[in-house]
Amino acid sequence: MVQEQAAILRPETLIEEFKKNGVTHVVTIPDSETNYLYELMKEQPWLEIVPASREGETFAISLGLLVGGKKPVCLIQNTGMMESGDSIRGMALDSGFPLVMVVGYRGWNRHGVITDSVARYTEPFLNALRINYYLVESNEDGARISEAFNEAQNTKRPVAILVGDEYHGFNRV
């Protein structure tokens, strides 16, 4: 039980990393895996949530915020990331701005058989666009989030954080 608790990726960890890296806006479509994270984000006075209607919007809205001097992140699910292909290409990859995208890795698991096709195609999709990514599954992976921000800043390219949903506590009551 103790081991299980230690393994959980706490939503507070993500919020702390956002704050540490100067994030001003989270442009997002909530998914079934991130409700607690959403509630926690709403409580942060330094953070503005921009709810979108479709994932492709999140990259375009983020570009506008970047032009205005803000520091957004996109928070979406891997299904929506695939829908966003043209927007990722035109608004993120081609823009020359750094952008961190936090992507819920629906269907991924470390110990069982992956049966959800979206999990099978998530990493090939990112590889096709030559977007680097960091897998974050537990609190111990928290430093990878800052690593992703640093890489985006240094390369002026989008970088993805894949949140493995096998352990995280984003949906706790």
Partner: peptide, 20 residues
């Protein structure tokens, strides 16, 4: 000029309005 992806210039302009 904020074009770049099909149907998404509107979204970029929203982001700009929120940022400024």
């Amino acid at each position: 000029n904020l074009g770049g992806a099909m149907g998404q210039t509107t979204s970029t302009c929203l982001g700009l309005a929120l940022g400024l």
